[in-house]
Amino acid sequence: MRTIAEINEKINNQTVVVWTVEELKVRVAEVGVTQAAKEVDVITTGTFEPMESSGAIINLGHTDPPIKIRSCWLDGILAYSGFGAVDLYLGATQSVDYERGDGLEEESKERGGGHVIEDLIAGKTVHLRAIGQVTDCYPRASFETTITRDTINQFYLYNPRNIYQNFIVGVNGGDRPLYTYLGPLQPRLGNAVYSNPGAISPLFNDPNLETIGIGTRIFLGGGIGYIAWEGTQNFTLQKRLPNQTPIGPAATLALIGDAKQMERRWVRGCYFKNYGPSLMLGVGVPIPVLHEEVIKKCAVQDKELVAPVVDFSIPRRVRPTFGLVTYAQLKSGRITIEGKQVRTAPLASIYLSRQVAIELKQWIGAGKFTLTERVAPIPSDRAFLPQDRWGATIALE
């Protein structure tokens, strides 16, 4: 029906028709898939959720005399420095270095790399302390200063694993509270927490990644980003329903984008009690309506998507499950597990996920954001390999 070049011409002429994925689902219910496909050119999707496998590449610029940084702390948080002399990678989940906390107050101990990334994006000042490896060409032994996003060279996010295609629902069948990457889980099935925003999430609406691939331009943190590669733990061989959506964690994407373009509203450091820091991130993916099948996939509803309920009280890689529940059940506020009504809550902000899709729609409609052809597909044959070894011993508390 259409090509990306034809859609981009409409975007440049500001004659393109763009709907959010929620608007598309409503329209399909009114007029059907075929008619909706004739009316719309681009569908926008969005999510705003914790994405802990994220981080920032930072180039500081050279000092005089030069330094070859081998240890570096940003507001007391260790940044990786084992490559270029003044290149750093700050991981979103890196926490305050307790031995080298630079005299930070106790309340700062809940800060992590995600908070420093947020502060830099917001234009705030960040304290930097570095120790160098002294060489003939890099004679400086140490360096201390403050930086902002305007006093450094490159500052971009490179996130090895973002926007899971699906995820799990966490519960706790044990007798004590558990503190997890899904937040606190209350004992004896006291609550259930899910991460994915469901039917508005990007990868649920293109389950086989037919329009999404390496090189796809996206909304990332309030700026323009790109899909750089498959994400770590990309597991496209996950079991799927007849509508091709996965029943658990499946595809993931590695994302990249210029953090100097980003907005604090869409990149927020966060902390999970007794677990650690992370990063809340807004990501929006445009789906070009190249043919009618695209609309059929985007019409999927929360009642047609499922996630496994996993018991975190069993401290093993493979945990028992209580079966599958739909996202419609999760969003209702309660699910039933073994006859018991259990309260549910999302980690993702449904409201902000919706706002990401709306803002991306506005960019496209105003001619500020064009689509890209993918340069390669995301691999579709990835198994999920465990790190088990014969004879390995496991110590469990």
Rank of each mutant, 00 (worst) to 15 (best):
M1R: 11
I4N: 07
I4Q: 08
E6D: 10
E6C: 11
K10H: 09
I11M: 03
V21A: 07
E23S: 08
V28S: 00
A29C: 08
E30P: 10
G32D: 13
V33G: 03
Q35E: 08
A37R: 00
A37H: 02
K38I: 05
K38R: 15
K38N: 12
E39W: 04
I43F: 08
T44Q: 03
T47N: 13
I57N: 14
P65T: 07
P65R: 15
I67H: 01
R70W: 05
W73T: 00
L78E: 14
Y80I: 07
S81F: 02
G84W: 11
V86Y: 13
D87N: 12
L88H: 01
T93S: 08
T93C: 12
Y98L: 15
E105D: 13
G114I: 01
I117Y: 03
A122D: 12
G123S: 09
V126G: 02
H127Q: 13
G132Q: 05
G132A: 06
G132N: 07
T135E: 15
T135L: 05
P139L: 04
S142A: 07
T146H: 13
I147S: 00
I147M: 02
T148C: 09
D150G: 13
T151M: 10
I152V: 12
I152C: 07
N153C: 08
F155I: 03
F155P: 00
Y156A: 10
L157S: 11
P160Q: 12
N162C: 09
Q165D: 00
V171Q: 06
L182T: 09
L185F: 04
N191D: 07
V193G: 01
Y194Q: 04
N196I: 09
P197R: 00
G198E: 02
G198I: 02
A199V: 07
A199Q: 13
P207H: 01
P207T: 00
L209G: 00
E210T: 15
G213K: 04
L220H: 05
G223E: 02
I224A: 10
E230G: 14
T232G: 09
T236L: 09
L237M: 13
L237P: 03
L241P: 05
G248N: 06
A254Q: 09
L255W: 03
K260L: 04
E263F: 14
R264S: 10
R268S: 07
C270E: 11
C270I: 15
Y271S: 10
Y275F: 11
S278L: 01
S278T: 12
L279P: 07
M280R: 14
L281W: 02
L281S: 01
G282T: 02
P288K: 01
V289S: 04
L290M: 12
E292F: 04
V294C: 11
C298W: 00
A299K: 02
V300R: 04
E304K: 02
E304P: 00
V309S: 05
I314Y: 12
P315K: 11
R316I: 10
R319C: 06
T321C: 12
L324A: 05
Q329Y: 03
L330N: 09
L330R: 06
G333M: 03
R343V: 13
A345G: 09
L347S: 03
L352S: 06
R354K: 08
V356K: 02
L360R: 02
L360Y: 05
I364L: 08
A366Q: 14
T370E: 14
P377G: 08
S380Y: 15
A383P: 10
T393L: 12
I394T: 13
L396P: 01
